[in-house]
Amino acid sequence: MEPRDSDAAPRLELRGLCGGYGSKQIVFDVDLAVAPASITVLLGHNGAGKTTTIATAFGLLPTKSGEVLLDGSRIDKGSPRDRVRSGVGFVPSERFVFPSLTVEENLTLGAFTEQDAARRAARREWVLDRWPILAERRSQLAGTMSGGQRRMLSLGIALMSSPRLLLLDEPSLGLAPVVVDQLFADLRRLADEDGLSVLLIEQSIAKALAVSDYAYVMRSGRIIAQEPAAELARRDSLWELF
């Protein structure tokens, strides 16, 4: 894996981000950057504040203070819909497909920001070309698919809006190891071949570091370590961070 270009302007930048639920603050002064066409992983124990960070970046939770920038422009005042229109996709860890709808209908919903039918159709074919199993099952109800196929579909839904940045929360949750390997290979290909930037939350630490360019570690709502993923993976004291 090529090292990321440290001189490239960040695709995503969080500056002093603080967020939480109601009056309860969960994350404190988070500084984080994701380079273009790269994968960045945010690691930490359960309850460290990772999901709160990514939910705040996407606008599902309000920003208490700090800034969220996409390609240098602030987006922290906008709604999730606004952020999708700006070029941000988000895949949650659970309930990430519409089980009573077909594969094709799920993908169509992912393109809700695109008004042009021809462009929606072209994007759908782009997604189906990358995951042929979805093309084969385009008329199948999503709820009858395997966990791995539903996860592929969730990525396809997010990619229907042509995002520059994809936020992924625990994509390997509940999946067999071989399916996780394929999923991470797909993410790597999307970064390398399609220029997608990815911010990934993941509990499969070794697999996530192997596919990522850069890594951050969070504890008790704060970033406590950051370095290239390959260097973090070589740390003898890695587990002391968790």
Rank of each mutant, 00 (worst) to 15 (best):
E2N: 15
P10G: 12
L12S: 11
R15C: 10
G19M: 10
G20H: 10
G22W: 08
Q25Y: 04
Q25S: 04
F28V: 04
F28K: 13
D31K: 08
A33Q: 14
I39R: 01
G44H: 01
H45T: 12
H45F: 09
N46Q: 11
T52H: 11
T53E: 06
I54K: 05
A57F: 07
A57W: 03
A57N: 02
P62M: 11
L69A: 12
L69E: 00
L70G: 05
R74G: 14
P80V: 08
V84K: 14
V84Q: 07
V84G: 13
G87D: 11
V88D: 10
F90N: 15
V91G: 04
P92M: 10
F96L: 12
F96W: 09
V103E: 04
E104S: 15
N106D: 10
T108F: 06
G110P: 02
R120H: 01
R123C: 05
V127E: 05
R137T: 04
M145D: 07
G148W: 08
R151P: 03
M152V: 05
L155R: 06
G156S: 11
A158D: 04
M160T: 09
L165I: 05
L167K: 11
L168D: 02
P171N: 09
P171R: 12
G174C: 10
A176Y: 06
A176N: 05
P177H: 10
V180A: 08
D181V: 08
R189L: 01
A191P: 00
D192I: 00
D194I: 00
D194R: 02
L200P: 02
L200F: 01
S204C: 07
I205R: 13
A206D: 15
A210L: 04
A210K: 05
V211G: 00
D213V: 03
D213I: 00
A215F: 06
V217A: 15
S220V: 09
G221Y: 03
Q226I: 00
E227N: 14
A229S: 14
L232C: 02
D236M: 07
E240L: 07
L241H: 13
